[in-house]
Design a protein around this nucleic acid. Structure first.
Length: 292
DNA sequence: ATCCTATCCTGGCTGC
DNA sequence: TGCAGCCAGGATAGGA
């Protein structure tokens, strides 16, 4: 699943291939990817890309004379910039032809991904929370923001208006590294816990960017076609049943806010009087239990 | 204010 | 071996 580190990798890789290029035309193969293909292509034809960056999980390209090309990969979107004639395969959704004979391609197996043309970025990104790797995201601000809400930590971290760019993988990894239970209520977090969470969110995302994101299934690939390698560093995500790397306790998987959630019930103490989820009591051992 | 469910999709996995 | 059915998961809308 493309989250901040994957989207950052995509933006960094397509940036040198797009900056300075003028869009000469294109083709939309799946209308819903762009909303209205005629309006989309009309707005883009003749525009020149001046910069490519990232905001949350959005790729943003600044255009001249005006406006922005914005993309969201959702679950399975991919971006490539390749020479003319490159075959994007069965999942091609949008192609934008460029003035040097290359073309920008948007591919998407599950069709949830989107591209937009907007005059003003705020039309799309107005509600996004702070960038977790930006200067405005301080431990102090995180503490204040956590205490201003009464929500469970896991769904709050997934809320893009709270902090932008964190998804299911990096939420679980950050909470484990900060030794915080996903069901802990945000208004009960101590200053020390907020400092830890802030530090581990930033460290996790930074390390994942260095490894060009995580590829554990057939979907996420960089614009150069390679998988990321941060999946090799996962401590809890996707590792239910395996021993905790810190203490050896069997890693558990729960469902929180409709999302698979991975944790160590020993390192991440369940909140007092929370349901037995993640505690030591619930659930009979399954037949698979007992390695570790 | 917060939570819950359904929706959009389809490759890949499970179970028979 | 084949096939039906279920699941994951980001974002959002609507209802509780």
């Amino acid at each position: 699943v493309p989250e901040l580190p994957e989207v950052e990798t995509v933006a960094r890789m397509i940036r040198p291939r797009l900056v300075g290029r003028t869009i000469t035309g294109g083709r939309v193969l799946w209308e819903r990817t762009v909303g209205d293909s005629r309006a989309f292509l009309r707005a883009l034809r003749g525009a020149t890309v001046r910069d490519v960056g990232r905001r949350g999980k959005y790729v943003v390209a600044r255009l001249e004379p005006e406006g922005w090309l914005v993309g969201h990969l959702r679950m399975t979107g991919r971006m490539h910039v390749e020479r003319a004639g490159w075959d994007p395969g069965a999942f091609a959704k949008v192609r934008l032809d460029l003035d040097d004979g290359t073309a920008f391609h948007f591919l998407d197996v599950r069709k949830f991904g989107r591209l937009w043309y907007v005059r003003d970025l705020a039309e799309l990104l107005d509600e996004l929370g702070p960038e977790p790797l930006g200067p405005e995201f301080t431990a102090e601000r995180l503490l204040d923001d956590l205490r201003a809400r009464k929500r469970l930590l896991k769904p709050l971290l997934l809320d893009q208006t709270f902090v932008a760019g964190i998804g299911n993988i990096y939420a679980d990894e950050s909470l484990f590294r900060a030794r915080l239970h996903p069901l802990l209520r945000s208004d009960r977090v101590t200053r020390e816990q907020a400092v830890r969470l802030h530090r581990e969110i930033r460290a996790t995302l930074t390390e994942a960017i260095e490894r060009e994101g995580s590829s554990f299934d057939a979907f996420y690939r960089t614009p150069e076609g390679n998988p990321g390698s941060y999946q090799d560093q996962f401590l809890v995500y996707g590792r239910a049943g395996e021993p905790c790397p810190a203490c050896g306790t069997r890693i558990r998987r729960l469902v929180v806010a409709q999302r698979g959630t991975h944790l160590c019930p020993t390192c991440q103490r369940p909140p007092r009087r929370a349901r037995s989820l993640g505690g030591s009591s619930a659930k009979r051992p399954s037949s698979r239990r007992g390695r570790a």
